[in-house]
Simulated assay, not measured.
Amino acid sequence: MGHGQPTGSCAFGVEREGRGNAMVTVTRPDGRKRVIFFERGRPTGYDKSQADRGEFRATKEGDLNIIRIGDERYEIVDAVAEGG
């Protein structure tokens, strides 16, 4: 998840609002949670607080969304946000 760290699986939950709109809540290994917002199936932002200074970037490879928030990296498949 963090810069230079190996990738791994995290627990997550999703609230779908239809039409590809969703909020995906990822529970990080340290127990903290990160919410990533999707609109029309595309990641558009996150639960930014004043302590967050990370730039939000999202790219897509096939059905995989690669999301970067500062040094954090998340990989979320389309089916999570859109259902399926």
Rank of each mutant, 00 (worst) to 15 (best):
Thr44Phe: 11
Ala51Leu: 15
Asn21Phe: 06
Thr27His: 13
Glu55Phe: 01
Gly41Leu: 08
Arg19Asp: 15
Gly54Cys: 13
Asp63Trp: 05
Ala22Leu: 00
Arg16Phe: 11
Asp47Ile: 03
Ile36Lys: 00
Thr7Gln: 13
Ser9Phe: 10
Arg42Asn: 01
Lys48Leu: 15
Phe38Gln: 08
Glu39Gln: 15
Glu39Asn: 12
Met23Trp: 10
Ser9Tyr: 00
Asp30Pro: 01
Phe37His: 02
Phe56Asp: 09
Lys48Asn: 04
Arg34His: 04
Asp47Val: 02
Phe12Arg: 06
Pro43Met: 10
Thr7Arg: 10
Pro29Ala: 09
Arg57Asp: 04
Cys10Pro: 05
Pro6Gln: 14
Gln50Tyr: 12
Arg42Lys: 07
Glu15Asn: 14
Phe37Lys: 15
Asp52Gln: 09
Val35Leu: 08
Arg42Val: 09
Gly54Pro: 13
Thr7Gly: 07
Ala58Pro: 05
Arg28Asn: 12
Glu39Leu: 12
Arg53His: 15
Gly31Leu: 07
Thr27Trp: 07
Gly8Trp: 13
Lys60Ser: 11
Thr44Asn: 14
Glu39His: 05
Gly20Pro: 04
Arg34Val: 06
Ile36Ala: 04
Met23Tyr: 05
Arg34Asp: 03
Arg57Asn: 08
Lys48Gly: 02
Phe38Asn: 01
Arg40Val: 03
Ala22Glu: 04
Arg16Ala: 06
Pro6Lys: 14
Gly62Arg: 08
Arg53Pro: 02
Gly62Tyr: 02
Arg40Ile: 04
Thr25Met: 09
Ser9Ile: 11
Ser9Gly: 08
Ala58Cys: 04
Val14Gln: 10
Lys48Arg: 15
Thr25Arg: 12
Gly31Tyr: 09
Ile36Ser: 00
Lys48Ile: 12
Phe12Asp: 11
Val35Gly: 07
Phe12Gly: 05
Arg19Cys: 05
Asp52Asn: 15
Arg19Phe: 11
Glu61Tyr: 05
Arg32Thr: 13
Gly13Ile: 10
Pro29Asn: 00
Gly45Leu: 02
Gly20Trp: 04
Pro43Cys: 03
Glu15Asp: 09
Asn21Gly: 00
Gly13Lys: 07
Ser49Ala: 07
Gly41Lys: 08
Asp52Thr: 00
Ala11Trp: 11
Glu55Trp: 08
Gly54Tyr: 13
Ile36Gln: 06
Arg42His: 03
Tyr46Cys: 06
Val14Asn: 13
Val26Gln: 14
Val24Lys: 02
Lys48Tyr: 14
Ala11Val: 14
Arg28Ala: 01
Pro29Lys: 12
Glu17Ala: 15
Gly20His: 08
Gly31Ile: 09
